[in-house]
């Protein structure tokens, strides 16, 4: 049971979606209109490159000390969806771009 749950948490990087109201986006718009919010979620273990291993090694040998580095790939949008337009509570139209992910990848 526990292993199953653990595995579920480590799904590879993929596109997921949520139906959210425009107000919930937290962008400052007031609107009850519902939009589809697609985001990237999952792990990137399979995408570890020699770069990541070497960077980790440099850090453990304290060759890199103060700088902020990231020694593992992360799951991010590779492309964003088209613009989203909506009518707000004051009957004004707005268009938001790069709101939603279209394609995900380990970068």
């Amino acid at each position: 049971q526990r292993r199953k749950r653990a595995r579920a948490r480590h799904k590879p990087c993929a596109l997921k979606e949520l139906e959210v109201s425009v107000s919930e986006l937290g962008l400052g718009y007031e609107s009850d209109e519902t939009v589809l919010f697609r985001y990237c979620s999952g792990t990137c273990e399979a995408a570890v490159r020699s770069y990541d291993l070497s960077l980790k090694s440099m850090r453990s040998r304290r060759r890199i000390k103060k700088e902020k580095v990231r020694a593992r790939p992360c799951c991010r949008p590779l492309a964003y969806d088209d613009d989203v337009s909506f009518l707000d509570a004051y009957n004004r139209y707005y268009t938001v771009n790069e709101l939603s992910a279209k394609e995900c990848g380990c970068v």
């Binding site: 209109e33 519902t34 939009v35 589809l36 088209d82 613009d83 989203v84 337009s85 909506f86 268009t95």
Partner: peptide, 16 residues
């Protein structure tokens, strides 16, 4: 509006 936003084609052309 919700039904349109949840359909990719309708959403794209409406935003258009």
């Amino acid at each position: 509006a919700k039904a349109c936003n949840l359909n990719d084609n309708c959403k794209r052309l409406r935003s258009g």
